[in-house]
């Protein structure tokens, strides 16, 4: 859902309320994207904050030749990619999923037993996602979890649609290979 242009224009001219409304519209999507990219709630919160601060600082420079959502997704992805790289450098290895017991699941309306099983499954999948190279993981998350169209992903990542499609295909195959031995736990 694209915010109306009037709202973006108001935010560009310094209207704080308009920016707060934009924040309300995008906060969940940006947080969710950062969460899937980092696999960690705390880091996702930080990345989300940096994204909106960056957007707030530079919204007056935003030109409407692309959509606001493309613009803000791109800021979030660039910040998160930089963060993942610097974290990997510090640790000397790629960032891996956390062992948070309450990792990334919707807890509403499920029994404790179901909850435990689902927690385990989500943890496995998130771990597998983080094993994918970043250039495959990001298009996959945008396509499968954020449900964006190929065309929008291509604009966000500045890649041809064909490349986006092939990266999603390869990411899914790689993920399938990683998770094939665990398929019965997922069914």
């Amino acid at each position: 859902m694209e915010p109306n242009k009037e709202l973006v224009e108001k935010a560009k001219s310094g209207d704080e309320e308009a920016f707060s409304l934009l924040f309300e519209q995008y906060k969940d999507r940006i947080y969710s994207l950062c969460l899937r990219m980092t696999g960690n709630r705390e880091d996702a919160g930080d990345m989300c904050q940096e994204t909106f601060i960056k957007a707030f600082k530079s919204i007056e420079k935003f030109r409407s030749h692309s959509s606001f959502s493309t613009w803000i997704y791109r800021i979030a992805i660039n910040h998160t990619k930089d963060f993942i790289r610097s974290k990997a450098r510090k640790r000397g290895s790629p960032v891996h999923a956390l062992s948070e017991s309450r990792l990334l699941i919707d807890e509403a309306n499920i029994s404790p037993q179901e909850h435990a099983l689902k927690t385990e499954r989500v943890k496995i999948v998130q771990q597998a996602l983080l094993e994918l190279p970043e250039n495959m993981r990001t298009p996959l998350i945008l396509f499968e979890i954020e449900n964006l169209e190929y065309r929008e992903i291509s604009r966000i990542l500045r890649l041809p649609v064909g490349t986006v499609k092939s990266r999603i295909f390869r990411a899914k195959i790689a993920l399938g290979e990683i998770l094939e031995p665990l398929r019965e736990h997922l069914e």
């Binding site: 947080y31 969460l35 709630r41 996959l140 399938g176």
Partner: peptide
Amino acid sequence: RKLETSSLALSEVTSEKIPEGTAANIL
């Protein structure tokens, strides 16, 4: 089959809402 496995797995992972406290901190 591999695509099916990965879709099955990804269906476990859904888009998630930002915790209220985090959103308030950002604002």
